[in-house]
């Protein structure tokens, strides 16, 4: 049992953070950064995040796991067909990785290899189904596995998505396909999170709210223009614009969001994009 699954089961508020593998083979900075994380239950390892090619998430997660840090392996359908996804999952299990965040993935168009052919052989619902199959001892075509993996599969959701009911149809499918927890896209508005958590209630699956540290109004505008599914509301952009010290304003905003999550959700997922030193300030 992973710590993440245990803590969520016991009702303790969890905190996850994330680390991106390097572009290249130099792992030391990523490993050192994770060493400094405090009060974190598990660390998400991103998978070619934003469709930018980096060292494999599985390789970094395996290293972290062996160094004693619990990870959440992110795995997207963008870069692998169903065979590669299954082999990577079995490989992850062999390295003791249990927590998974199973994603469709951003389109290749957004990253540094826009000419790549995106795969999307499976979607996130099918990936969850396949993972449940592996856990039951069979691959996608029903062949028995010699050695059965144990996972704690999670999925992503954007609580602010519009139309809400359409997004929620997919959430229900993900739960039916074995999603045991959700990590959300960055939360910016209380009412969106509240509405989402109300709908989640009957499903009884823990939700870890995404909290993004926005360092400046400029960064907020960049996110709005370039990152799929991220829309920083104008009120927050204005607040950052007016702030004398935008970074500490960003930390304050993140701290408020963590407060909403403590009230409504089962945990927070902190995205500090390299400013890990701000984590204690966000959590206080």
């Amino acid at each position: 049992m992973s710590h993440l699954s245990e803590q969520l089961a016991s009702g303790r508020f969890v905190v996850t953070a994330e680390i991106a593998p390097p572009k290249g083979t130099h792992l030391a900075p990523a490993l050192a950064a994770v060493e400094k994380f405090e009060g974190i239950t598990a660390v998400n390892v991103t998978d070619n995040q934003g469709a930018n090619m980096r060292l494999s998430s599985l390789a970094l997660a395996a290293q972290l796991q062996q160094a004693g840090t619990e990870t959440v392996l992110q795995l997207t359908c963008r870069d692998r067909n169903r065979m590669a996804l299954q082999s990577d999952l079995l490989g992850a299990a062999a390295f003791g990785i249990e927590n998974l965040l199973l994603l469709s993935g951003d389109h290749s168009k957004f990253g540094d290899h826009p000419d790549a052919r995106p795969v999307f052989d499976l979607d996130s619902v099918q990936l969850l189904d396949m993972t449940a199959g592996l856990m039951a001892g069979v691959d996608m075509v029903g062949n028995a596995l010699n050695g059965v993996p144990h996972f704690f599969p999670g999925a992503a959701v954007n609580p602010a998505a519009d139309p809400f009911e359409l997004m929620f149809q997919k959430v229900s499918k993900k739960v039916a396909s074995g999603a045991r927890f959700f990590q959300t896209q960055s939360i910016f508005e209380y009412k969106n999170l509240e509405r989402f958590m109300l709908s989640m209630e009957p499903l009884n699956v823990p939700v870890i709210a995404g909290v993004l540290l926005i360092r400046s109004a400029k960064m907020a505008r960049f996110l709005n223009a370039n990152i799929p599914g991220v829309q920083v509301p104008k009120a927050l952009v204005d607040r950052l614009d007016r702030a004398a010290d935008p970074m500490s304003e960003g930390v304050a905003i993140a701290r408020e969001t963590v407060g909403w999550a403590r009230e409504l959700c089962q945990g927070v997922h902190l995205m500090t994009l390299g400013h890990d030193d701000k984590i204690p300030g966000i959590l206080t």
């Binding site: 359908c77 963008r78 994603l103 469709s104 951003d106 389109h107 995106p118 999307f120 979607d123 996130s124 619902v125 099918q126 992503a156 959701v157 954007n158 998505a161 519009d162 359409l166 997004m167 149809q169 997919k170 499918k173 896209q185 799929p228 599914g229």
Partner: peptide, 11 residues
């Protein structure tokens, strides 16, 4: 993305 089970998080 040719998804078959509903929209992605980028909608």
């Amino acid at each position: 993305k040719g998804l078959l089970n509903g929209p992605c998080g980028g909608m």
